[in-house]
Design a binder for these strands. Structure first.
Lengths: 116, 116
DNA sequence: ACGTGTTATTCTAATCATAGAATAACGAAA
DNA sequence: TTTCGTTATTCTATGATTAGAATAACACGT
């Protein structure tokens, strides 16, 4: 069983019962930041635009604020950028997640000693 | 957004590329421990027996050892218990997971201060 | 022998998730 | 005013997941 045995942990945030933020939206937002477009973000991760749009919309609904500031029309057709709240949320999510992953990495050999 | 904002983290273990253990199998094993039967475990969590069986079988294949010691026939039709390796793995998984969750709980207000 | 309730295994049917199409709106530039 | 590439939105067709049926084997008790 020893073949590179390792933990993977996924983090999602809930507002009460309903999930409001997780790996999916996070990755989309990350890519919107570099693509300056939701469509570009979706395509770059092999996801249908309609799905990406739904994911963002659901997250926004659960959170109660907008994640994307988007414009339509214009020379390049428009685009999207992260709202300030989205920037903050994504930053916190990423730092928190990386902290947890680091900790998970550290603790792993303690709980699974024979596999290192 | 403040309505009981909280993190949920899920832990799964990989052997190289393929997932070999996660929340699904873990919950099944936990219930096999009290139900003394895979069927009972599956039913108790509203899962089809065939699915439970597949889940366990896939996990066993990825891990390279048996998770369940099962008997067929007899007065009560047979049943299943955890193999010693499964007991150890499940115990380690649960302790590790609870440690990570505890840590996540502690760190949360540090990364999401305005929400506590 | 037979009934019982399980494991084991495969197959099919139904459900769910997702991709992709279709359509409209938009605004800058040509 | 037409073209362009996006956002926005809904709908449908496809694909993946899952539940549940079906069948066999098993061994104990009656």
């Amino acid at each position: 069983m020893e073949q590179n045995f390792h933990p993977v942990l996924s983090l999602r945030l809930f507002c009460g019962e309903e999930k409001c933020f997780g790996p999916g939206v996070a990755e989309l937002l990350r890519r919107v930041r570099t693509e300056h477009s939701l469509r570009g973000a979706a395509i770059s991760m092999g996801m249908a635009y309609s799905k990406a749009w739904t994911v963002v919309k659901n997250s926004e609904a659960a959170l109660g604020f907008k994640l994307l500031v988007s414009t339509t029309g214009g020379k390049h057709g428009g685009g999207a950028t992260l709202s300030p709240e989205a920037e903050r949320l994504l930053a916190a999510y990423e730092e928190y997640r990386s902290r947890l992953r680091q900790y998970a990495q550290e603790q792993f050999p303690i709980y699974f000693p024979q596999l290192t």
